[in-house]
Design a protein around this nucleic acid. Structure first.
Lengths: 229, 229, 229, 229
DNA sequence: GATGAATGAGTGTTCATTCAT
DNA sequence: TATGAATGAACACTCATTCAT
């Protein structure tokens, strides 16, 4: 009925059109209900044409995912290497959350289906995925190096809590169990990660000012009574 | 192929046998590739027999899940209401982790497929699931009441981090990305949750040193200006 | 669940109970959706027991029909051999209509399914059915003999109009296209059959001529014998 | 088995071929025993192809019926609006009879199965069916208006007698209970409907006697007063 | 380059009937 | 006599993939 695509498009444009449509279909139907026929119809193209450019349905889906990851990685927000640890951690979590929320089905496909593919490690998306995880990991490692983050905890655990928490929220959202704010969630995640949920034990108000004052006084004390230490 | 079951079993035993076999098939194949035919064959029974006892494939799958949840909930480890907050939190996380690790595909079925069922809220498994989540929630709420846990963070966020983290680890494990120890992971999760990943904020080492320094400075000050206090 | 029938019933009572239940199921479900399992359950009996007494589902259904026909034929209203032709015709139509309306599904089974059975002519129900039709036929034949009914029309045609008309109304009623009164319908059918739908033909031409003639003769008579009126 | 159809037919021709084959299968087997597999095989096509063009078995059956109704309605014999009432009534009955006789199983499907469909009123065939009934109804109403038909009888009753009678004859014929002539039956139905089965009423007992008496008296009158006529 | 007709192996589900106990 | 566990042949419907044109 609709014939959005002109006939006899150059290869690149046709491929792009199919990818674009496939992404929409994937988003709307989920990958269990993703039909090549629907992609063809919406794209104003025959099923045969799709198989001209993509070896299989799975191949098409993989290409869709790779495209999407590329956009994510190319994004100018992509990575921040400056700012405080907290800012950088928040930013990287916020980025992931907003992407997952924007394309939850795609995330799910990559996370649940694609990753189980025996051939996964040879796919380009494997490298893309590694890069995404690496961004989170880098922030945490930097924190460890600078001493701002404890170095006695497994990195993978932290990574799993971040992404696990994100996905959990998203799926609850997908099931219609209520919306959630990306900002608020990212704040919460960052906060819990950095401070834990335990009640503050130490001496919160004093720290910096106090320490500085003490340091100065000690210097003076040392001068006054050098032998007392 | 196999004919492990005797012919003409009493109803209950046959039902149990089918459930048992179905659980194994589900575990091995995943629910997308779960075939009633395979259950029948492995069980040494015709497909008709399965449909004698279960209204549909989905119904069988639900029953399998419920059975499994029952085992989980009936377990004597089920819940601890005594002990320190940390012990209780660890225990509840450890329990969940070990169950998910033991039956990951079942977990996935319940989490991804069943929960989306429009009828989900009327299923027994809905209540069972609520109970499981409630156990985690109770520990955290008790902690808040006693002041051991900060009360300025959303419970759902913590819950999502716990279960999200657990699932993430399990799926990585399922994908063959390396094993993990339930104990170590539970320790890690509990630890990160309670303390956060932030480095010990000055206090722990500082308190003592600071107290000593201040004490010394006060002594000096007292000597220099005895009347100013 | 229900266990309306006592265990170990004498053969006749058990057969009667099954027949009774089967009739109810047939009435409620229609013969396309008639399930032996449902009969067994409602009857508090196993499916095996049914097959003990009835060779097949079809056999059971035939027995149900025969039972029902027997009741119909034994009924004291069964046949009237006295009264006017119109009364007798009305009665026989009214009888059929009320039976069809009371057991429409059974009628349908006999009419549509059983009659097509290659073995139909050897069944008892074939004879029963002949008897029912014969009652209508007898009335019409008696009418022909007495000169009250035209003898130039095929009996089968009349019979088909009667039963066809009856069934048509019943099915419309079954489809929920409105109820109908047995009395009114029987009246209508009888009326149309006897008088046709054509407007009365005799009066129009005759009256005038006759009236005029009589008027003229009266005028003459008056003149001849003026005092006789 | 048979491979009567060329491979790779254009859509329209394939659809037509399937419809044609389906009609034959429906005719031969009846709609309870209508198998998509048989249609496919006879058509030299896979079942998948059928489902390419028809959403379901039921949909196919409906399309077959609609096609057939279209033919019936488009026929040039379709309707006569001129001629005597008797001719018009005969024609409309004769038309219906010949169609039912030609495609009895299809008629049965429409009449018994389709009409019960909860969605029936939204189908095109509902309108088609209304039109067919309307043609009969129109003739009768015209007769009432012109005074040629009694207006004290319910139209629906007449309609049911016509169609009921038609169907009854056809099914008897289908069951092999003897052939019937469309012409003779149509004549008979028309005749009975218009005149009823009652003997001619015009000269009951009185008429003749009266007429004779009048005739005799008139003869006398003529003799007495010869000039008065 | 593009089409779209055609496929066919699968998949869940039904239910009358049998028979060992 | 009665049970009820078990069967298995059917059947409607799906959809990724192919290939002649």
């Amino acid at each position: 009925m609709a014939r959005p695509a002109t006939r006899r498009l150059p290869r690149d444009q046709r491929v792009a059109a199919i990818l674009q449509t496939a992404r929409v279909v994937l988003r709307e139907r989920g990958f269990e209900n993703f039909l090549t026929l629907e992609v063809a119809e919406r794209c104003g193209v025959s099923e045969g044409t799709i198989y001209k450019y993509f070896a299989s349905k799975r191949d098409l889906l993989i290409k869709v995912s790779e495209d999407w990851f590329d956009e994510f990685l190319d994004d100018d927000y992509a990575e921040r290497t400056s700012g405080s640890l907290r800012e950088r951690l928040f930013h990287v979590i916020w980025r992931s959350l907003s992407v997952v929320k924007r394309e939850p089905v795609l995330t799910r496909f990559v996370l649940l289906d694609l990753r189980s593919d025996p051939n996964y490690r040879n796919l380009r998306i494997y490298e893309q995925n590694r890069e995404i995880v690496a961004r989170v990991t880098r922030v945490i490692q930097d924190g460890m190096t600078s001493g701002e983050i404890r170095s006695d905890i497994p990195l993978t655990l932290v990574r799993d809590m971040v992404f696990g928490g994100i996905e959990h929220q998203t799926w609850a959202y997908l099931r219609g169990e209520g919306d959630f704010s990306v900002e608020v969630s990212a704040e919460g995640l960052t906060d819990v990660l950095l401070r834990g949920i335990g009640a503050p034990v130490e001496a919160p108000p004093a720290p910096d000012a106090l320490t500085q004052a003490v340091a100065r006084l000690e210097a003076i004390a040392d001068r006054l009574e050098p032998d007392q230490r």
